[in-house]
Simulated scan of single mutants.
Amino acid sequence: MACSSCASTKPDTNNSPAWRRVLWIALGVNALMFAVEMAAGVAGGSKALQADALDFLGDSANYAISLGVAGMALAWRARAALIKGATLALLGIYVLAATTWAIWNGRTPEAEVMGVVGVVALIANAVVALMLFRFRDGDANMRSVWICSRNDVIGNLAVVMAAAGVFGTGTAWPDLVVAGVMAVLGITGGAQIVLQARGELAGEATIGDRAGTA
């Protein structure tokens, strides 16, 4: 439940107007870019764009969850972070499987489409990442938002590099390699979030046990 008792005595970063405002902006940007990148990825035959689009979709859901638990007790924020971390890792596993399938069944993507959409996504995510940078050292919930944003920027840079590689080689390999790297990044990022959230839940349980025995 919401931590109303402490909110009246000291500022709560997890429920601050600045935090909520950034989350709403990030949610809007990610939802829009999911639609743009998925359409471009399917039309252009790019697994890297589709992987990045799925990351946008996962991030949109994660930002919505963060808005829902903003201001709640640490245990609830940690549980939300657990869900987000698991979702990010599962999306990474799916992308890795889809990329593996495309090695034998895919086609050479359109480098021009990849490049243009990748640059637009990079600019959008760089702006969001800059806004989220000051919240990077918060609890697991805040850190999960920062990790998602950081991964987006790295992924967009990789997509642009993949577009250049596809254009230069005339093959799908740069696209597939980048999609694979993005999948691994999602899996490891999700694992980081889950580990921190589990640690916070364990710490809350320990505090509760001590309070019960006091």
Rank of each mutant, 00 (worst) to 15 (best):
M1E: 07
M1G: 13
C6Q: 12
C6M: 12
A7V: 13
T9W: 14
K10H: 08
K10G: 07
T13C: 09
W19E: 09
R21E: 14
A35F: 11
A35G: 05
E37C: 05
A39W: 09
G41I: 05
G44V: 03
S46E: 03
K47C: 11
L49E: 02
Q50Y: 07
Q50H: 09
D52N: 14
D55F: 11
D55L: 11
D59M: 13
S60T: 14
Y63G: 05
Y63L: 13
I65V: 15
L67H: 06
L67P: 03
L67C: 07
G71K: 12
A73K: 07
L74W: 04
W76I: 15
W76P: 02
R77I: 06
R79N: 09
A81C: 11
G85T: 09
G85D: 04
G85A: 03
A89L: 13
Y94T: 09
V95C: 07
L96N: 02
A97D: 15
A98M: 15
T100P: 04
W104T: 12
N105A: 11
E110N: 10
A111H: 02
E112L: 12
G115F: 13
V116P: 02
V116F: 04
V120F: 08
A121Y: 00
A124T: 01
N125L: 01
N125I: 00
A129W: 10
M131F: 07
D137G: 10
D139H: 03
N141Y: 02
V145M: 09
W146L: 04
I147C: 02
D152Y: 01
V153A: 00
G155M: 01
V159S: 01
A164R: 14
T171V: 11
A179F: 05
G189Y: 13
G190E: 02
A191Q: 06
I193L: 12
A202D: 14
A205E: 09
I207G: 07
G208S: 14
D209T: 15
R210D: 11
A211V: 13
